[in-house]
């Protein structure tokens, strides 16, 4: 009888114990679907994305949506206040979430948020970084790797140019930003394990 769904894409971590697993999932799905649609709309605006095959567009989005959402919603994880804000608008302390069952995954999400927000990127830089997160040729199921790779290289080049231009005395920022990519992959894997645990419950 799992009583909590500890994802800030939910309106609240509390779930109705009288609801079926399917009902809980339906409610959760209703909460996160608009954010997923926004990721798709964002992808469509990436120059060159629509030129990829529909199969590769879907593969990139399937593999990368969680990571894009982590970047977009990193500010929900407030490291200074040690709180997480859920989509319903309520803040929960890390301690409260731990008492509800949150473990290492929450720690990793807080660490990521601290690392990313600490770079103090502009909206434009964050947006371009998000395109680099999404357009990644090594995702599983990509058919035309060369096309995705070419687009990926273009986006990384633009990101490097923008970061170099905006942070002339902070040459390490671009490297630090690229180091967030494997961190996101790791979070993605951890998230899949959390989803599996949810399904089992």
């Amino acid at each position: 009888n799992r009583m909590h769904l500890l994802c800030p894409m939910n309106t609240s971590p509390h779930v109705n114990p009288h609801k079926s697993g399917h009902g809980i999932w339906e409610e959760f799905s209703h909460s996160f679907t608009p954010a997923v649609r926004e990721v798709v709309e964002f992808a469509k605006r990436i120059p060159g994305f629509s030129d990829l095959s529909q199969h590769d567009q879907v593969s990139l989005l399937k593999a990368g949506t969680f990571e894009v959402l982590v970047v977009r919603f990193a500010s929900l994880f407030d490291v200074k206040d040690r709180t997480v804000t859920f989509l319903g608008g309520t803040k929960y302390s890390v301690e409260a979430l731990r008492a509800m069952g949150a473990g290492d995954f929450l720690t990793s999400m807080m660490d990521f948020s601290e690392n990313l927000m600490g770079l103090s990127l502009s909206e434009e830089e964050m947006s371009l970084f998000t395109t680099v997160v999404l357009i990644s040729a090594d995702r599983s199921g990509i058919e035309n790797v060369n096309s995705v790779e070419a687009l990926q290289e273009t986006l990384i080049r633009h990101l490097k140019g923008l970061i170099t231009k905006n942070h002339t005395n902070e040459s390490a920022i671009f490297t630090k930003l690229l180091l967030r990519l494997p961190e996101l992959r790791s979070l993605n894997n951890m998230h899949s394990e959390q989803l599996l645990a949810f399904k089992i419950h």
């Binding site: 997923v36 798709v40 709309e41 399937k62 989803l195």
Partner: peptide, 27 residues
């Protein structure tokens, strides 16, 4: 559970959002 995106309905949401784009695209 090798493909969480498909199992959780994510692929369906993605496909529908992408299809909307195709329908809106002028020929």
């Amino acid at each position: 559970f090798s493909d969480p995106a498909s199992n959780l309905g994510l692929e369906d949401i993605i496909r529908k959002a992408l299809m909307g784009n195709l329908e809106e695209r002028p020929e």
